[in-house]
Each structure stands twice: as structure tokens, then as C-alpha cells.
């Protein structure tokens, strides 16, 4: 674990990091038909990730294991106009390759991102995942988080 470094996403990490996000998106599609992945996923994911390098309100951290990207986390800063705290860190993507799981790396990615966004004024952290993903539910509950809002949906 000690050799795995958590750092900001760089241009040269885009391909490997996109691969991790694609895995996550495909896994999400297992949980609900409204998460069926779209065509041209790789390009869209790559553009989405690279926007984080430019935007101040979107950040990506990667877990670098001697040059190999083995985990990633992406967060957005959301302005909350009516509630305190006024700024929320929303974790939109997080993925760790299977063999690097159960070593605390996911936890470390979250805490590193929290540290980074705290300095930008975020006073709370939220995370989104498909309701049916019970493993995610278990993980975030173990991180001291709770369900604070529900999103219901149907196809129209």
C-alpha cells in the first residue's frame, strides 16, 4: 500500500483512468435499466475526465501504483443556495481495481479528496450511486455517511 500514491489527474493518465470509469459505468448498468451505458462511452468519459483538469469545481484524484493507475475518484463542488453548509463536495465517480480493494484505498481516496475540497470551502460530502448497489451502500455507511436524499425515476 505504501507505494501507492494519491495525486491529481494528469493528461497522460486519461486513458487508464477512463478505463476505470468505464468499468464503473458498466457495473452501474447492472443495477438499473436507466443506467444502460451509451454509445461512444470511452470518448465521452475521456472528455468528462479531462474537463476536471481545467475546471476548478471538478477534481479527479488517481491512485498511482508505480505508474499504473489502480483507482480514481471524481468530485464536483455544488453550490447549495438555501442550506448550510453552502458548498457540498459531491463524489460522482469512484473506482478501485478489484485486487487493490479491501486495503483501505477507497477510504484513502475519499479522505484525500475531502481534504482538497475543504480548502475550497466545502463543508459536507455526498456521494451518488445506484440504489440497488448494496455493496456501495454498505461501504458508505461504514464511512459514517447516511442516505440524505432520494431520487426516484422512470422512463418517459
Amino acid at each position: 500500500m505504501s507505494e501507492i500514491k494519491i495525486r491529481d489527474l494528469k493528461e497522460e493518465d486519461l486513458k487508464d483512468t477512463a478505463n476505470l470509469v468505464i468499468r464503473l459505468k458498466k457495473f452501474n448498468s447492472e443495477h438499473d435499466p436507466l443506467f444502460v451505458v451509451t454509445e461512444g462511452l470511452e470518448q465521452k468519459v475521456t472528455e468528462y475526465l479531462s474537463s476536471a483538469i481545467r475546471l476548478d469545481t471538478r477534481d479527479v484524484l488517481v491512485a498511482d501504483n508505480g505508474g499504473k493507475i489502480v483507482g480514481m475518484i471524481m468530485g464536483e463542488i455544488i453550490e447549495r443556495h438555501f442550506y448550510e453548509p453552502l458548498k457540498e463536495l459531491r463524489v460522482t465517480e469512484i473506482y478501485v481495481l478489484p485486487e487493490y480493494r479491501k486495503s483501505g484505498l477507497g477510504r484513502k481516496l475519499i479522505s484525500s479528496l475531502i481534504e482538497k475540497e475543504k480548502s475550497k470551502g466545502c463543508g459536507m460530502v455526498t456521494v451518488e450511486f445506484p440504489t440497488e448497489n448494496l455493496l456501495a451502500h454498505k461501504f458508505y455507511t461504514s464511512q459514517g455517511m447516511r442516505s440524505i436524499i432520494s431520487i426516484y425515476g422512470k422512463k418517459i
Binding site: 468499468r23 464503473l24 457495473f27 447492472e30 481495481l97 478489484p98 485486487e99 455493496l135
Partner: peptide
Amino acid sequence: HPEREDMDILMKDNPWKYNLAL
């Protein structure tokens, strides 16, 4: 193998096979 595409699905549906894949 640990990097197979369907590893996450295995983790969810068949953790026994998933563990051996690791």
C-alpha cells in the same frame, strides 16, 4: 484474472468465484 471486465458483476453475484479470480 483480476482485471477481467466482469469482475464487478462477479463481486456482486458470485463473490466466491470473484475471490478465486483474485
